[in-house]
Design a protein around this nucleic acid. Sequence first.
RNA 1: GCCGAAGUGGCGGAAUUGGCAGACGCGCCAGAUUCAGGUUCUGGUGGGUGAAAGCCUGUGGGGGUUCGAGUCCCCCCUUCGGCACCA
Length: 887
Amino acid sequence: MTERFDHKRIEAFWQEAWEKDRAFSSSPSNDREKYYVLEMFPYPSGKIHMGHVRNYSIGDVVARFLMMKGKNVLHPMGWDSFGLPAENAAIQNNIHPSKWTYENIANMKRQLKGLGLCYDWDREVATCAPEYYKWNQWIFLRLYEKGLAYKKLSLVNWCPGCSTVLANEQVIEGACWRCSSEVDAKELNQWFFKITEYAEELLQCTYKMPGWPERVLTMQRNWIGKSIGAEIEFKVKGAPESIRVFTTRPDTIYGVTFLSIAPSHPVVDKIASREKISEIKAFSDKLKNKTKRDIDLLEKQGIFIGASCVNPLTGEDVPVYASNFVLMEYGTGAVMAVPGHDQRDFEFAKAYNLPIKVVINPSDSALNPETLDKAYVDNGVMSPLTPFAGMSNIEAIDEILKILEQKGLGKKTINYKLRDWGISRQRYWGCPIPIVYCEKCGVVPVDLKDLPVILPEDVSFTGKGLSPLANAGAFVNTICPKCGSEAKRETDTMDTFVDSSWYFLRYCSPKELTLPFDKADASYWMPVDQYVGGIEHAVLHLLYSRFFTKAMRDLGLIGFDEPFKNLLTQGMVCKETLKCPEHGFLFPEEVKAGKCVKCNKAVSSGPVEKMSKSKKNIVDPDRIISEYGADTTRLFSLFAAPPEKDLDWNEEGVEGCYRFLGRVWRLVLDNIEFIRDVQKYDPQKDGSLRVPTPLYPTDPTKHDPHKDDSFQRKAEIMDIHTLTHRTIEKVTHDIEERFHFNTAISAIMEQVNALYLFIGSMPVEKLETNGLAKKVLRESIESLILILSPFAPHISEELWKRVGSLTPLYMTRWPDASELALLKEEFTLIVQVNGKLRSKVIVPVGATEADVRPIVLNDAKTKEWINGKSIRKFVYVPEKLVNIVAG
RNA sequence: GCCGAAGUGGCGGAAUUGGCAGACGCGCCAGAUUCAGGUUCUGGUGGGUGAAAGCCUGUGGGGGUUCGAGUCCCCCCUUCGGCACCA
């Protein structure tokens, strides 16, 4: 009886051994090439979910593989531990956010260790620790000093029911997530980081980042939203003011029939007629209180403000409208309206009976504004109504800009959609902003030597009113660092995205006391060679981190431009949902025989969706790990789909992986006597034993144990040798070049299947006496254990020890595929007749067309298909196939 | 509306450069082992047709390029993701 595969005992044993050996600790070294593998650190919400398992399994394979490849690998882990859920827990369960957070960290750390992930835990960081957030404050002050952090009035979401500010994420369809009151827009003084200063560089670098997925780069480019156009000044008729508009289509200026401005545009107060001002104000307020979605549904609306401007080129009067579709935040808050060539303006002109002018025509026809049913937005030729009749509109842009520039009424401009990053949060559980407000000195930064500004523990959580910090007198009341008189601290905390914008640098020297990180350590380890995380951070975290890197470079802290060389965005973990017509989503245990246990109605299986509590389709990693083990859990999460695709969770697939590991276990233990003390087969020394080998799988009659012919036996043994090295080659390539762990695992499975067949076809006494078989078997099993180890490290370590290795597996080199073993003397040539597979022939490697032609044409099957027809073409693809065109 | 990704057996997915479509796993079917269930081992499994060998057909749909297309080009359909009055 083979010893049972006891995953619990094995996994506990090796996890302890790795920890005791400090197997994965890292330090800079000049004799090995560095490699920094990073997975996005988790928010300590309480326990890990399958998304974490997947994310960290991917990173772990990369890290373990590269360690075995001899790289000096940095693979750290930490906690993004400031944030709102901790505060909610405080309000709901009367537990301090700090306690809640650290308990969660302890539990999740236990879970990550239970997965056998190869982290250097000596580098662990938690962003809520003063030793960490001190440096947040330090960076903030350096940015402030550089003018990259500033304060300004801006709109926030205000809940009148809770009398507090809400984050955008807390506003659900325009209402408070907690009390459902309608959320107002409110103007507050907020701190900002000047990310817009880097808009152009952030954009340009996206074209030089081949290691990032194209779709993430596209999303970032869209988010930055560069558009090239012109700013044009329209003088107000009968008033000293003028209105500046931004347009990407200066070529349409001759078609302007009105101007549209944002209702909140400051010019309204100056030029609108008295009776209109209050109407426009009301219109503007109404818009502010609507969520984006609602505005989308609104029709084009506007109010004539009672004033007109003059078209700088035609001198025509253009009435000014306050319109609901013009945003104050973009461009200049004013647009020139060209109904003939812009669809929004067209709709507005139709609704308000404004003239439509065509100034650009398609190259082959002339448009009639009377009969136009939509705006003509394509390129074309300038119409006779303009001074550039017949010229292409693209060329006309430069001509028009020249005239405007001469008149001093326009110039080329670039606009970005990217806004400065508002980092103030009216919350407690975050990093305090190190600023003091003094009546005499105004805004005063805290001295660097006085950092950190410690977040006070002794505060009360009511969920009402201002941030708990604002009520913490001992915190708020302080002394002005400049003049020493009484002053008050800033009570807002920083957005938690600030914490995560530089944590990858802190990992390089997590215990550094004088700076956020040691410059030499950072320049050794950085940039991150491989970053792995979810697509949900495509813009936010990944853009902020890029910005921070550039800003810190300009502060002289680092000497590189981009933080993450290669990025892998893994797909979501999904599962089928179950839905009862009466009770909605159900947990699997609420369904018996396809019926809801509450109402006995038939339950339909809903769509496969991302695992979430509300959809009741979550699978708890703890349960899976305890039932099947960490190795199986990791293996399944890597085998079920390629990493960037969504993964469908199904328990039968998990069982399949468990079965596979059991199969490996038995394969090794059942044959351990044959291989334990045998020397490995070395093709360099034993190369003379090589015999011509057909491709695997070979003729099934060969597996007949009674038909023992030593030549055939030898060929069969050598097939295993070849397969072993082909598998090493494929697995190495799949991990290294493609991150296709699913195909790497399937190749290992194929090797296992082949070994079972080989052993099954070989009588025991043969195995015992055949030296070559033993050697080849040992080599194959050894290499199997090694290449399986990044995926399933515990079982691999255990088997590695069992086959008699003295050093632990994690200290062992990754096997190399022997080129000699991969050499073939013959290969199977595919024979196609008229593009269809008709036969196969064995030919020597390196055969030329002249060598192959007679062999193929004499092949009986091929002859049959050619059937006397004349051969019109003979296509030979060396080492692959021939295609005979006959007819 | 714009941008992007994808569409292959009952299911998850392979096919790296245009060259044997469906590797591997799940499920299902059969045989062996077992007192029995489970386990384990072996074989089969796209569809059509056939006793079988085999033949025909087949990668969302339609066209094209090519000796040869899941892969390249054009048009269309569907699904998912992102952005969305950005002037």
